[in-house]
């Protein structure tokens, strides 16, 4: 089977859906002829033209508010925001309008608006180009929050986002954009709310989010050499969150560690832990543990940047600590 990068797979989903549905259009800074800062739209301008690949001024609140109105009136806008940090200017539009309009209109309006772009700490991007922020979006009723971790999932989840009627925050970790995976030629969809068990094991369960999936798998390779089999779960979507798959794994392993680059307080790990305690308390043989990035703005200097995200030694140690409980 052919291999595609994460970005190429997501772009393939986009171009397939744009060919199929003339109501889809993309807005963003440099997403027209330039093809996007991360090549998210390269080649599409020549196919679909300026109305559907719409370069914007630097006005995140403005174009997100505009796309909100467009989504209410028969089109399917995609905001290609480049860095998630940039759409913090539009939080009022997102939380007060985008997330609430289906509810406020008692379901008579739909909100097929996709916001997609990069997240994550890597490459000395410093504090205004390194955010992830997905726990904030998960906290708000109305959003779908998608965090794909490989090319196959990126395409299947993006296709699902493009066919749905809910607002989707589609977050692409910068460290994964050039990673390759096998992607079939045939059309496929990955439903929201369906976690992937990316590695099977019995000694403990690791739920890893975004960039932590790859790090968790590397640590598990090292432990496998010692005869320890760890189960790794990638939730893929954080809203909806597939708790049953996590509960089933904890039922088998009795131990749970949640790894997430974003901040620990009120984070996705806290939510997963609370739900597992409430529904799977009797299965637990050890306290639930979490491994997160350091609770600080993201610094620039490489040694400082490296110090805020969990490194391979810390990941391995966190799993060993859990096993020792």
């Amino acid at each position: 089977m052919r291999e595609l990068t994460f970005t190429a797979a997501a772009r393939e989903a986009l171009t397939e859906e744009m060919a199929r549905d003339p109501s889809i259009f993309v807005v963003g800074e440099g997403i027209g002829q330039r093809g996007g800062n991360f090549n998210t739209t390269s080649g599409l301008y020549d196919l679909y033209g300026p109305m559907r690949l719409r370069d914007t001024p630097i006005v995140e609140r403005g174009f997100i508010g505009m796309c909100t109105g467009a989504a209410m009136t028969g089109t399917r806008p995609i905001v290609d925001f480049m860095f998630v940090d940039f759409i913090l200017d539009a939080m009022g539009e997102l939380i007060n309008q985008v997330a609430k309009i289906q509810y406020m209109s008692s379901g008579r309006l739909k909100m097929p608006l996709i916001l997609r772009g990069s997240i994550g700490i890597t490459g000395a991007s410093a504090t205004h180009h390194s955010g992830s922020y997905f726990p904030m979006f998960v906290n708000i009723p109305g959003f779908r929050v998608v965090v794909p971790t490989n090319a196959y999932d990126a395409k299947g989840l993006f296709k699902t986002a493009l066919r749905g009627d809910d607002p989707v925050i589609f977050l692409e970790h910068k460290s994964l954009l050039n990673s390759k995976a096998q992607v079939p030629e045939e059309e496929y969809f990955i439903p929201f709310g369906q976690a992937a068990v990316v590695r099977e094991g019995s000694a403990a369960t690791v739920v890893a989010v975004g960039s932590m999936v790859r790090k968790a798998l590397e640590a598990c390779d090292a432990l496998a050499a010692e005869g320890i089999a760890i189960e790794v779960i990638d939730p893929r979507t954080l809203a909806p969150l597939d708790i049953p798959t996590i509960l089933a794994s904890v039922h088998k392993t009795g131990r749970l560690l949640i790894m997430d680059e974003t901040f620990q307080p009120c984070g996705i790990g806290a939510e997963i832990a609370a739900q597992v305690v409430a529904q799977g308390f009797d299965d637990l043989d050890a306290p639930i543990m979490r491994l997160n990035g350091v609770y600080t703005p993201t610094p620039y200097s490489p040694p400082l940047e490296a110090a805020v995200i969990p490194n391979p030694t810390q990941v391995l140690q966190a799993i060993r600590d859990l096993l020792a409980e």
């Binding site: 003339p22 259009f25 109105g69 989504a71």
Partner: peptide
């Protein structure tokens, strides 16, 4: 927000030639 949303309705109108 209504100012932005009306602008978006205008965008839909143009894209779909409504």
């Amino acid at each position: 927000p209504c100012i932005l949303q009306a602008t978006g309705a205008g965008y839909s109108a143009r894209l779909l030639n409504k």
